[in-house]
């Protein structure tokens, strides 16, 4: 009996070793597949035109062969055409706009979210459940439906005028419509609801007002969730593409995604891949840095959205 057990144990160990090798092999293969586009982007951005156009493609560049000209060229001034006098890829202008839009949108979103989540989690009012269900239902509707009218609304507010649009108007148009997130209200409400009722009643006995209770007790307790919301929301401006292009009249009001496509193809249809990849790298790097700095919060927040409340 004991011998059979030992035999089984050996076989089991061998089987587990093999399955571990297969698992690690598979995961590593996928990981390489995930990383290749990043590698290819950065590698291409460091090549000269000759290297880019070599057949078969060059897969590795020694450090001493790296060229930064593709990056420096992005900041050279355009000589002619409608964008004459501006840098080829006005990265810093786009970055400044993106950071500003990101900051203002997030600030607005966090205020509306905290107040609404407090009402849904803590206060009692008529029609609460119905209202909450209606809000959740709007998450199903594709945003393309809203965007048409919203563009007209922005027009009516006077924020979009081909000739006279100011920077402030462009910023308002890009931020105000996005200071709403039903999902974050839902997410924060879940956190708020976990705070024990006793705390609230104790505060009430002490004569603390609702607003002060929210400010001094609930927000500090829910801080991890709020930080997650702030980080996830700030990343949104980096991928915003269609709306900023629609509601701004000038290139210099736009965001990073807008400048990327098209800027590196000349009138003959020839694309400068080196410059294109350099710009793509410049846009990607801040996001990756943000990700590695707040990896835990980001992955927890995104993961949470997949778990049904």
């Amino acid at each position: 009996m004991a011998e059979i057990f030992v035999e089984n144990e050996k076989a089991y160990k061998r089987r587990r070793l093999i399955s571990n090798i297969v698992t690690f092999g598979f995961l590593s293969l996928v990981a390489i597949g995930i990383l290749i586009p990043f590698y290819w982007m950065i590698l291409t951005s460091l090549k000269s035109i000759q290297e880019i156009e070599s057949v078969p493609p060059i897969l590795w560049l020694n450090f001493s062969d790296w060229k930064i000209t593709n990056y420096t060229d992005l900041f050279l001034t355009v000589q002619s055409g409608e964008r004459a006098g501006e840098p080829l890829f006005p990265f810093f202008t786009y970055m400044k706009n993106t950071v500003l839009i990101s900051f203002l949108t997030t600030l607005g979103t966090i205020i509306t979210t905290i107040l609404a989540a407090f009402a849904f989690a803590r206060l009692n009012f008529k029609g609460k459940d119905t209202l909450f269900a209606v809000l959740l239902a709007t998450m199903m509707v594709p945003g393309e439906i809203f965007i048409l009218t919203n563009f007209l609304t922005i027009n009516q507010f006077g924020w979009y005028d081909i000739l006279t649009q100011t920077y402030t108007e462009a910023v308002l148009a890009m931020t105000i419509p996005f200071m709403i997130s039903v999902f974050y209200v839902f997410y924060l409400r879940q956190t708020f609801r976990k705070i024990p009722d006793e705390l609230y009643f104790a505060a009430k006995v002490d004569g603390t007002s609702d607003f002060k209770y929210l400010l001094k007790i609930m927000i500090p307790i829910a801080m991890p969730t709020i930080v997650t919301i702030i980080i996830l929301n700030s990343m949104g401006a980096w991928s915003a593409y269609i709306w900023p292009a629609m509601v701004t009249t000038q290139d210099k009001y736009r965001l990073v995604s807008n400048g990327l496509r098209g800027a590196f193809t000349d009138t003959t249809g020839r694309t400068d891949y080196g410059q294109q990849m350099a710009a793509a790298t410049l846009v990607t790097v801040p996001l990756i840095i943000l990700f590695f700095t707040f990896r835990k919060q980001i992955m927890r927040g995104v993961g949470r959205s997949g778990i049904k409340g």
């Binding site: 290819w40 982007m41 593409y241 990327l260 294109q276 710009a279 793509a280 846009v283 990607t284």
Partner: peptide, 8 residues
């Protein structure tokens, strides 16, 4: 960024 990586 979906556009940047799309270009890659």
């Amino acid at each position: 960024n979906a556009i940047a990586i799309g270009m890659a």
